[in-house]
Nucleic acid binder design. Structure first.
Lengths: 194, 194, 194, 194
DNA sequence: TATGAATGAGTCTTCATTCAT
DNA sequence: AATGAATGAAGACTCATTCAT
């Protein structure tokens, strides 16, 4: 019942992640992963039972990595507006990135798998982001760097716009200019009345 | 090569539409459609070559139907705000509807199939909606029913929020209250400064 | 929903029967049958879903064939004793036949698949045989060709002895002499007191 | 190549026996045994090469155990009829026991594996039983407790009936009443003419 | 036009068996 | 002696697609 090789497990997850980034979720087969990892069919089953299980694990890792990354870049003495700008710049990157992202795979997965509330990473990620953003907006309002009457509503609104762009970038395509304009729109609304 | 039966073609498309609404795009097989239509395998191939072709045709029909519906309900002597409210109410319905919608199928399809710009119905639909909405906002601003400095930017923003909610409703789930709040948020921003 | 090709269905069943006679039930795979029939994998699934389904169908056919055969050979004006002898000779053939029989496959199947009473062909076959045999013994007793106090008990006893020999022939092996002795033993008991 | 652990060997055999009693022979995999014994895959192979080898060993142990049991219960000063009754009662128990018996596994095994005469435990067991039974019948006849013209033939006949019932109990099912009737039938034949 | 039997490629999944430690 | 990770063969099953009728 040992954890088998933790390294191999990580290797599989890392390899699978890239496949999911390329092909989304539904088109990925156990064989794809086996081939990419250059291990045996049975070998993969030793670690994971299904692409679903693998994907959920990939997502989990990804979520914590992202948290860490963000945290790592914030602990500066930057202004609220700076942090906001940084956050939106990161989001822009994700929106415009076609292949380095699990976006498509994630959507495909959650479209097809209704996950129980508690396990729903996508929901959890969204709500966490809303909370952080709302706190930021509140702090900004208090420090009079920006103006926001309804921090939570605004935070949700912003996250939905970003969500909309993420999806749009994979369905109808989205230009950098388009994204920039929307980010500018968001920022303008927040600082216009200051 | 002849004209085949137009009726049968319509029947297939109508039947397939419901399957796509239920199962999304990727999980639908030619067999599913054959079975649902109660026609022969070969028969289906006489009309369509793939689920992809069928789905695109379903989308095309759907797009024109939707346009007609909207037009039909607007040509009243309603105020700009009324039209806006009506539009948002329709969007709300679509957002909250889990199974009467091609949303999931559409996303799945466009995630996997990069369609040439000109054929991209989703883009066309989005842009048309933006245009109509922007015109509305402009008209509303001029009539001083509402206030909007940047009609196109705002229209895009609104459409993205709605897009975000459509997706969210299928991934993390979205309550009616959540949607109402966001619609209120949008309307408030438009009328607050009037 | 047509019955596909009835001929092909029969061909598959006939071919499968021989495989079951050779290999029993559990070792027979769908692939075995596909290969023997020289049809495609998918082709077989068009007719049958599993070896279980095929085997049950083979058994059903076999049962009716056997009934017919027996009936065909009895409608003579033979004496009770003659019929009895004929019946036992047939049974002897079956007992000694190692490969032209579904015995092993049947046992393997019913060991593993508890079938509902009504569908249990083996039970049905046994009980039918008991009935026929009991009638025979009764008739024989009445005509004073033989003596049997308890026709049903005796019929069951005889059938069990034959069943025992059928099994034994496939487990420990059984010589012709052994079978002859037992048949003689049975007959002797029936006629000894006459 | 050394002596390995005799205890572990016994433990494996004992554990495997219960699996065979539950699942018969063919469905038991080396993995089943490994899991049940909570030893390592390689560990099992150190002691046994296959389920076949394990099963034969289980049977061997079982045979000697049974002999011992029987002997232990007979060395009383009971009458021949009592011993007979006891023997048949034991057989009845085995016939009606669905899961505490190696019957099914044994049949499955010998159906599929033609074992050389000398090694054929099932044959050996049968013949031993016949011998013991025949001696009993002879003794009984001499003491005039019962009547039996052909002790060996009768012994074989009885053993075959019992064999038939053992099989039948696993294929078509057999009620206690059915078994009792047959046992009574046997006894009646032996004592009726005394 | 329309049918539906037939094909065969492609996945999934499980195990017996090996082998480095 | 003992472990258990790793392999690869084997079997089940499903569909897209073709083709003779």
């Amino acid at each position: 019942m040992g954890e088998k090789s933790v390294q191999k497990r990580q290797f599989i997850l890392e390899t699978a992640k890239h496949i999911f980034m390329e092909k989304g979720f539904k088109d990925v087969t156990m064989k794809d992963i086996v081939d990419a990892c250059e291990i045996s069919r049975g070998g993969l089953y030793l670690y994971f039972e299904s692409t679903k299980e693998i994907f959920l694990e990939v997502l989990r890792l990804e979520a914590s990595d992202t948290d860490d990354d963000f945290a790592a870049n914030i602990k500066e003495d930057s202004s609220i507006t700076d942090i906001l700008r940084f956050f939106l710049k990161e989001q822009k990157k994700e929106i415009l990135s076609q292949t380095n992202t699990l976006t498509v795979a994630t959507y495909e997965f959650f479209f097809a798998n209704k996950v129980s509330k508690k396990e729903n990473i996508i929901k959890h990620t969204f709500e966490t982001a809303v909370k952080v953003l709302a706190d930021l907006l509140l702090a900004g309002t208090e420090s009079e760097e920006l103006y926001c009457e309804n921090p939570v509503g605004t935070a949700r609104n912003i996250m939905l716009v970003l969500e909309g762009m993420k999806v749009a970038s994979h369905t109808m395509g989205v230009s950098e200019k388009f994204v920039d304009e929307q980010i500018l729109y968001i920022m303008t609304n927040l600082v216009q009345n200051v």
